[in-house]
Simulated assay, not measured.
Amino acid sequence: MNTKAYAAHSATSKLEPWKLDRRDPNPDDVSIKINYCGVCHSDIHFAENDWGMTQYPVVPGHEIIGTVTAVGSDVNNFKVGDTVGVGCLVDSCRSCPSCAQGLENYCLEGFVGTYGGIGKDGQPTYGGYSDKIVVSERFVLKIPEKLDVKSAAPLLCAGITTYSPLRHVNLSKGDTLGVVGMGGLGHIGIKLAKAMGAEVTVFTRSKHKIDEAKRNGADHVVISTDEDQMAAAAGSLNYILDTVPVDHDFNPYLRALKLDGTYIVVGQITPITQPLSAADMIFMRRSVVGSLIGGIPETQEVLDFCAEHDISCDVEMIKMQDINEGYQRMKDSDVKYRFVIDMSSI
């Protein structure tokens, strides 16, 4: 199927209009007209080859909301006209122990990303900066009616990225959680944690984000550059969710954990250059763990959870033609807190 899209053709080029051919639907496929697509920092990293793995041309976008236009003969859970979502994954081996548990994000054969991956047909995958997409039923999500479709898009990445580790540690009423970073991931992490019953402390370098953090539900805000405030926070938290996407020192935040506290890294996937303090871990039996998005069942779970608790992402709508300006504004931290593209503009 001929598809209109926006693509980057090199690490230094702007995104520009491009056309690609989507595959003809298989019996288990769902064909989707894309209505909205969230903009994730990963999109920028891929477009600019920050991680050294990009194959060009690349069509970013893995926070997709759309309308079903056709279904294959073997599809049972979707029908034409349904509002659906596609997140970070469009396939996996489907048979390894991880996939059998619904943890396709940890597929032992390697999952197939919505863009920048290679499908089972040997062809590259292209993402949601396009007017349509074809995806296997197994990797399509139902969008609850109670969710606003525009603000729901980032839940498919930012939402599941913060929800999955909080569920994994069984965050619950009475727990104390620190959130490092007050951006796209951080603001939704606060909302999810509050709905789970936790007391939330936000760590930020920016004093102007104090009111923003509290408006999103934070109970406390600590300015991380203030030594007195950091000292006062020492040993106060059960968990810390670190959402910062660039290299930084974990150790000052690590000391805020209680005995048996857990430090959860979801933002930084580049090599850690700041050595971790073994003493700070050993003497309080603290642990540092990582978490990568979530599988398809858990992604459906976070959508349903947000619908039940009236949680949405704070978004700013943009046109597809303004994506390059949007990328620059994201680099400048000039968005509260996620861009969502209105794909009718393409």
Rank of each mutant, 00 (worst) to 15 (best):
Thr3Ile: 13
Thr3Lys: 07
Tyr6Lys: 01
Ala7Arg: 00
His9Cys: 08
His9Asp: 02
His9Leu: 14
Ser13Pro: 01
Ser13Trp: 03
Lys19Gln: 13
Leu20Trp: 06
Leu20Thr: 00
Asp24Ala: 15
Pro25Val: 03
Asp28Met: 05
Ile34Gly: 12
Gly38Met: 12
Asp43Lys: 05
Ala47Lys: 03
Trp51His: 10
Gly52Lys: 02
Val58Asn: 09
Gly72Leu: 12
Gly72Gln: 04
Asp82Val: 01
Gly85Trp: 02
Val86Pro: 03
Gly87Ile: 04
Cys88Gly: 01
Cys88Glu: 02
Ser92Cys: 15
Arg94Ser: 00
Cys96Asp: 01
Cys99Glu: 02
Ala100Thr: 00
Gln101Leu: 08
Asn105His: 11
Cys107Glu: 07
Glu109Ser: 12
Gly113Thr: 05
Lys120Tyr: 06
Gly122Ala: 15
Thr125Ser: 15
Thr125His: 15
Gly127Ile: 14
Asp131Cys: 10
Asp131Ile: 06
Arg138Gly: 05
Lys142Met: 09
Ile143Leu: 15
Val149Glu: 15
Ser151Lys: 09
Ala152Gly: 11
Ala153Glu: 07
Pro154Ala: 13
Cys157Ser: 05
Ser164Lys: 09
Arg167Asn: 10
Arg167Trp: 03
His168Glu: 15
His168Met: 15
Val169Phe: 14
Ser172Gln: 10
Lys173Pro: 00
Lys173Trp: 09
Thr176Cys: 10
Gly178Glu: 04
Gly181Cys: 08
Met182Arg: 00
Gly183Gln: 01
Leu185Trp: 01
His187Cys: 10
Gly189Ser: 10
Ala193Phe: 05
Ala193Gly: 05
Val200Leu: 13
Val200Asn: 12
Phe203Lys: 03
Arg205Met: 11
Lys207Asp: 08
Lys207Met: 09
Ile210Ser: 05
Ile210Cys: 11
Asp211Val: 07
His220Tyr: 05
His220Phe: 07
Ile223Asp: 04
Ile223Met: 08
Asp226His: 00
Gln229Lys: 11
Met230Thr: 02
Leu237Phe: 12
Thr243Glu: 14
Pro252Ala: 08
Thr262Gln: 07
Val265Gln: 12
Val265His: 03
Gly267Ala: 12
Gln274Trp: 09
Gln274His: 10
Ser277Arg: 04
Met281Tyr: 04
Phe283Asn: 13
Arg285Gln: 11
Arg286Leu: 08
Val288Thr: 06
Gly290Ser: 10
Gly290Asp: 07
Gly290Phe: 12
Ser291Met: 09
Leu292Ile: 13
Gly294Asp: 14
Glu298Ile: 09
Glu298Asn: 10
Glu298Lys: 09
Asp310Trp: 11
Asp310Met: 11
Ile311His: 13
Ser312Pro: 06
Cys313Arg: 03
Ile318Asp: 07
Tyr327Asn: 00
